[in-house]
Amino acid sequence: MKTFVVGASGATGRLLVAQLLKRDLHVKIIARTIESLPDHVRHHANLSIIQESILNLSDAEMAQHVNDCVAVASCLGHNLNFKGIFGQPRQLVTDATRRLCIAIKANYPAQSVKFVLMNTTGNRNLDLAEPMIFAERCVMRLIRLLLPPHGDNEDAANYLRTEIGQNDTTIEWVVVRPDTLINDSEVTPYEIYPSPIRSAIFNAGKTSRVNVAHFMAELITDHHTWNRWKGQMPVIYNTSPSTENRQ
């Protein structure tokens, strides 16, 4: 079982790679630089590295790289600096998602390939009636106008939701929506919901990157977890102490 991971050198991507390797999976990654990967990950026997920018690959190269993979995971995101937010490529996540899906389809896989996209809880699932108060709608309009990466995240999720859809015979997908990302060294209890249970603008929760990586790995490796969430945009939060006390 081999998984193709893009954005593998990022803060969450490298944690996902570690989670997959811990499960004895073979992992293929593409990254411009690999210095951020820990040595025990970088030199793991089950890891294959393609050191390149994903958007520089030709269509044929892309199809070749995903040909032997049963799952594709994207942790791509924009760097949080001026160039990353306002520079090119503005549609990094969307373009990569689209091209990866085209590459998967070009191989005519014998069974459906899983596609797991890391996204954000600020992106609403338009298949559901997810409520948003007037003040939130106003803020979100400003964010879309002023911060191009947010629109990129929305477009990438909408591509899977509308272009791939629920009945595609070659690709099944899940869009994972964490709330405010924090760093933590260990996996801790977390909760998964079909939709946000709090305002991403005015009452944001917290989600540790390692928990996001753990959940994405569970989706890829656990049949029950995948069937529960495929074709959906689940939201992940760290379990709060108050919730733990009630359990």
Results as ranks from 00 to 15, higher is better:
R141Y: 12
K105T: 09
L55W: 06
Q88E: 15
C101T: 09
W173E: 01
S58K: 07
H223R: 12
I143E: 00
D184K: 14
T207C: 10
G77E: 04
V5C: 05
T243H: 11
T169W: 07
S58A: 12
S9M: 11
V93T: 14
T169I: 13
S199L: 07
D95T: 12
P148E: 04
Q64K: 14
A200F: 07
E136V: 01
T3H: 04
I236K: 00
D179Y: 06
I133G: 10
L47H: 01
I34P: 01
N79M: 13
E130A: 11
G77A: 11
N245L: 15
L25N: 10
H65P: 01
Q247R: 13
V212M: 10
V210K: 00
A31C: 10
S74A: 04
Y159M: 00
Q51N: 02
I201Y: 02
I49E: 01
K28V: 10
A217N: 01
Y108H: 15
P194S: 12
T180F: 05
C138E: 11
R141P: 01
L92Y: 07
E52D: 14
N158L: 08
Y108A: 15
R144I: 11
A204W: 07
T170Y: 10
E52P: 03
A204C: 11
R14S: 03
I133E: 13
